[in-house]
Design a binder for these strands. Structure first.
Length: 287
DNA sequence: AGAATTGAGTAGATTACGTCA
DNA sequence: ATTGACGTAATCTACTCAATT
């Protein structure tokens, strides 16, 4: 519907007027606590289309993969981690679906685990379990792990490439970072969740602005309507006015009710088809 | 001291896969 | 050999807590 053109597009899908009633996106409303991760993943190509038109206002998230959302939020990686990143890339070898979305990676994971990495994980657990080892040396007070700058940077770089990890990638990262795979996994889980939270906040702000704008627009149109009604009452011989005094809508190229073939009895009759105005792609609310 | 950040635990859901009748 | 039901493991999101800054 052209909303993509809006300069402050946050990736949010805001449909006003004509929307599609796509069953796969509207069905299975997320349950209160645990919406399916697949249920709230709209198809990647789900640009607003116009299959069946229903007047409605829809708000929704585009469901693009996290790495797309995040990509612009973080600076590029430093050179100091290139080697590690290379290793990480090797782990995400071509046949291991390095380019799949977060939607499908979860499914790939199982197969890959079956193929290779279970023993490796056990080994890494032994090697890099310094955190848990420290826990067991007498003091019950659990020391919270604090990632070093290098560790954080590498994790960030990895996240920018893939917001989800397959087992090989997880193993490779854990080995590089001297962390347990579980810790890497948790970091990615938190990272995804918090990225999504931030994005939701941004979307919320955007929607608030949209709401304000639409409210103002609605108010303005109501006022204009009142004025036109008053004008109609005060000038019943409007039809006899010189054409030069009539205003022409620049986008519709229809004179206000006079002369056009679609004009019915009333000079203020509406267009035969609802003229849905895209407020975002047409900032100048001429009509 | 209080807010923000962040690592980690938990519950519930989904999926793939293996087993068995 | 095929198929459907069932159990299990892995992983996800959402929510939450608590240590640390």
């Amino acid at each position: 519907m052209g909303f993509d053109d809006h300069p402050c597009n946050t990736g949010l899908v805001l449909g006003l007027g004509l929307t599609t009633s796509s069953p796969q996106e509207s069905t299975s409303p997320p349950k209160a606590h645990n919406p399916s991760r697949f249920a709230n993943k709209p198809s990647p190509n789900s640009a607003p289309t116009s299959a069946t038109f229903e007047p409605s206002l829809t708000l929704g998230l585009p469901g693009e993969p996290y790495h797309q959302l995040v990509a612009s939020n973080y600076k590029g990686g430093g050179n100091s981690h290139e080697e590690a990143i290379d290793l990480y890339r090797q782990a995400s070898s071509p046949h291991s679906h390095s380019a799949v979305s977060s939607f499908s990676s979860g499914r790939v994971v199982k197969r890959e685990r079956d193929l290779s990495s279970e023993e490796v994980e056990v080994e890494v657990e032994k090697v890099s379990s310094r955190a848990s080892d420290e826990d067991e040396d007498g003091s019950n007070a659990r020391k919270k792990l604090r990632l070093t700058k290098e560790q954080s940077a590498l994790l960030e770089d990895s996240f920018k490439q893939h917001s989800t990890l397959n087992p090989k990638q997880k193993q490779a990262l854990a080995r590089q970072l001297n962390l347990r795979p579980r810790q890497v996994e948790v970091w990615f889980q938190n990272r995804r969740a918090r990225t999504k939270l931030k994005q939701t906040e941004v979307d919320c702000e955007f929607l608030k602005k949209c709401c304000e704008t639409l409210t103002d627009e609605n108010r303005r149109l109501q006022k204009e309507l009142q004025e036109l009604k008053a004008l109609k009452l005060s000038q019943p011989l409007y039809m006899h006015m010189p054409a030069a005094t009539l205003t022409m809508c620049p986008s519709c190229e229809r004179i206000g009710g006079v002369g056009s073939e679609g004009a019915s009895k009333s000079p203020f009759s509406m267009a035969p088809k609802p003229h849905f105005y895209n407020h975002f792609t047409n900032p100048s609310a001429a009509c």
